[in-house]
């Protein structure tokens, strides 16, 4: 049984699907899975669940999309990805889904979202994040994308990061409700 990435989703209204037992389980692994031979059994022992119950519940939480993915979480700067740019596009709303799927297909794109415009200050509605080892690499990726997805005529802006102030990731107050 492999945990696979869901390919596409339209954001639905807030709809919590987890119960108290799920929250305890998610809290128990939020900082990492035990590095031991039977990690799900170890988690289960802490929570009073069997190994099979833990596995079945995690599988369900993955299918429900509560767990987006499961595996190594890398610190990209430490891997030499020093440069990142948020590239934003002003695309016709009716083309946004198709173009978003096209952009998301590149392996150098790490995030891709449609977001609202804030007119008149902000006209852009499609966002993607490109990571690269240098600015030149990021710009070469961008040129490749523009050609491949036929974006030549669409206005865009490239927002390179100058500085990262804070990267703690989201911390959830699980099990405290």
């Amino acid at each position: 049984m492999e945990l696979n990435v869901i390919k596409h989703s339209v954001v639905s209204p807030h709809r919590p699907v987890v119960d108290e037992a799920d929250r305890r389980l998610l809290a128990a692994i939020q900082h990492g899975l035990p590095l031991s031979s039977r990690p799900y059994a170890e988690i289960g022992a802490r929570l009073g669940l069997s190994e099979q119950q833990v596995i079945a519940r995690l599988q369900w939480l993955k299918e429900a999309g509560v767990i987006r993915r499961f595996g190594v979480v890398v610190r990209h700067h430490e891997l030499g990805y020093a440069s990142n740019a948020m590239v934003v596009w002003d695309v016709p709303d009716e083309q946004a889904s198709e173009l978003g799927r096209c952009l998301a297909g590149f392996d150098f794109i790490t995030l891709c979202y449609r977001r609202p415009r804030r007119l008149p200050q902000w006209r852009f509605n499609l966002y993607c994040m490109i990571h690269g080892k240098s600015r030149e690499e990021v710009m070469a990726h961008l040129e490749w994308m523009v050609n491949h997805c036929d974006l030549q005529t669409l206005p865009h802006a490239v927002l390179f990061s100058r500085r990262r102030f804070k990267q703690r990731g989201a911390v959830y107050a699980l099990g405290e409700r």
Binding site: P16, I29, Q30, I67, F70, V73, A170
Partner: peptide
């Protein structure tokens, strides 16, 4: 070494109620 921040899950905030 800090190459990895953790080995584990990434959650979907909205589906946790957040």
């Amino acid at each position: 070494q800090g190459t990895l921040t953790r080995f584990g899950p990434l959650y979907h905030a909205e589906r946790l109620g957040g």
